[in-house]
Design a protein around this nucleic acid. Sequence first.
DNA 1: ACCTGGGCTGTAACCGTTTACACCCGATTC
DNA 2: GAATCGGGTGTAAACGGTTACAGCCCAGGT
Lengths: 345, 345
Amino acid sequence: MPTKSPRSRHPEGHRQATIRDVARAARVSVATVSRALNDSGPVRDDTRRRVRDAARDLRFTPHGAARSLITSRTNTLGVLLPDLYGEFFSEIIRGIDREAQRAGYQLLLSSARNAQDEVHGAFRAMYGRVDGLILMAPDGELAEMFAQRRDGTPIVFINSPVESDDACVITIDNHGGAYRMVKHLVQKGRDRVALLCGAERNHDAMERMRGYRDALDDCGISRDPRWEVPGDFSEGSGYRAARAVLKLRPRANAIFAANDAMAVGALSALREDGLAIPEDVAVAGFDDIPIARYLSPPLSSVHVPIAQLGERAMGLLLGEVATPGAKNGHRVVLPTTLVIRESST
Amino acid sequence: MPTKSPRSRHPEGHRQATIRDVARAARVSVATVSRALNDSGPVRDDTRRRVRDAARDLRFTPHGAARSLITSRTNTLGVLLPDLYGEFFSEIIRGIDREAQRAGYQLLLSSARNAQDEVHGAFRAMYGRVDGLILMAPDGELAEMFAQRRDGTPIVFINSPVESDDACVITIDNHGGAYRMVKHLVQKGRDRVALLCGAERNHDAMERMRGYRDALDDCGISRDPRWEVPGDFSEGSGYRAARAVLKLRPRANAIFAANDAMAVGALSALREDGLAIPEDVAVAGFDDIPIARYLSPPLSSVHVPIAQLGERAMGLLLGEVATPGAKNGHRVVLPTTLVIRESST
DNA sequence: ACCTGGGCTGTAACCGTTTACACCCGATTC
DNA sequence: GAATCGGGTGTAAACGGTTACAGCCCAGGT
């Protein structure tokens, strides 16, 4: 006959032990258990031992939600990215995770295409489960909207065009990188440089385009708008964009892709047409994702310290979380460097 | 003079509104607010409207931890991976995320090299914040240890060698894939096939090696232990392993890498030595990560539906979470298929 | 006129922790 | 020997939601 006790034990399998169970087993109060396990107050040595043993025997694991409800700390940080596809995001997550792990934090991950309601939904779902948030929103409008928020949650923006100067935002030198890469191509004697553009309404893409244009202008090379072909940062779009470029006459003798994924697509389009790289067409990308050096030919690219970008963002966030009052708006711009490999020599 | 009220308002900036604030503003009880916002009970239309308006005005966001404490549902699932580096993990996370998003779940992500205490630590930190867990532990001992656990949390194992038949585990056909790939190489006339091994104590790596050996044996080709060179699944180790292979005489005329990352490293080693692929040495990998087709030459590989692996795992977990009692041990083995590209033609 | 029933609402218990506060008690100080 | 002190412990109030339960009110049936 089943007991009527509200806490019938082991209805089937084991119920997770609570702090009360441990207290009962160690013949002390819950307060003492808490103090003993967290070293948060005076406890006699033998009491502590009794508590620890009981906790071990019962396999006690403190309930995370309960703990954070009262302490209002979750030891978790949210990460909200526009996408999860490809090596760029993989690397940035890795950097974020590495730094978070070092500081003993967990990661609550979400991806949301830049649709506003999706991002807001994700944000709502995270409230009360995170101490802070890393947000990557290359879409300006969205980023600014979050920068306006004035609830307590610290936010660090990655690659987001936010103006508010009390916001924490970390970006990379898109313009400078693109500018120098295009100049390099020109110096190598290329005078017809095509650009495979990144996604629309994307701040990084726009900055890179600006760098491309400025470089050509400064070199006194006339630009041809037909050579700025649209893309969306994916391999497939790079492939298609390159195909489009190759149809134009006179043929371009260099292709600058707004990111490496598109450059990869471009490489395979060129190979299909039997064009020699870099002899017929030089190719360069942006991001310097890990495999860039392993492509053939190895891909010249604007090096972005991707993992470091993640680490620094997390570092900023950790600082923000530690000093809640300090509304210290930080702005960090990571430099980009040229990595010249065979694809543009 | 500062008020002594325990709930002094807006000490600086805004405090997040709680359900009590909404109740006060709408002149109803908290119970009614909860019912109105969650549609979880009868509420008069105009009351509901008042509540909704108040919630909107106050920017009320329910506190996740508080909610899950009482409902004992978190709408979050844990993901514990051995590493985060490279396209394989990136893809699997993407698959997991896609399925989780569809079902309205969040993801709590952790990576822990297979050190036992790290994994246990991550697990402890997740308790009370997740409804279930996806665990990838190619290390047998560790996986088995978790399979033994009998607390309530549903766990789904990916690519883990767990025997217990009431566990949920999803794997891929490592042996069959490797076997068929090696047979393919032999059919192309390669009689000296080297193997770049994966990480030690790794179940996938061992299965792939078994497939390699069985295939050679079945083809009546004598195996040379020197041609099984150690690696650890990274590009760098693939590069070094390939270098080691090339030192051996007679020279191998095919290299089968235990995963694509190592194959990428091998390709660049071969290129450095000026060897023609596939004429001098054929190369094949395992996983068929997205960039495999964009390498040059495009890489033959054993196709693994990586994203699908993640999706299916999440699907299994969602089922498990939905029906807590059903201790239905599931075992799914996803088939692998050969994708032959130029690197082995 | 009374009972019944159902729609709407409020009160309060509960989830599992942490922690302010009070208490007890033995040792030290004057 | 009283007062003080401080280490060790327990009691109970939080934290912010959900929900069982009870009460209220009013329509409808007898």
